[in-house]
């Protein structure tokens, strides 16, 4: 495939409002599940965790 400059060609398929809204709801649910997942593993004391993350030396 030959790469071509495609920005701003305006050839994106048009979506109707219903599709967009359904798509957005699905995205929101998706993001919620990601955030929940992060909450599940995130270090409980964020402040202490960030403070202890120090690198000495390195290029």
């Amino acid at each position: 495939m030959r790469p071509t400059r495609r920005g701003g060609d305006g050839d994106e398929p048009a979506q109707d409002a219903g599709q967009v809204s359904a798509h957005k709801q699905q995205l929101d649910a998706d993001v919620d599940s990601v955030l929940d997942e992060i909450d599940g593993v995130l270090e409980s004391n964020a402040e202490e965790f960030v403070r202890s993350f120090v690198q000495k030396g390195g290029q």
Partner: peptide, 11 residues
């Protein structure tokens, strides 16, 4: 500047 966001960045 919330530590939680910095923690996410590190983790």
């Amino acid at each position: 500047n919330d530590p939680k966001l910095k923690a996410i960045d590190i983790q």
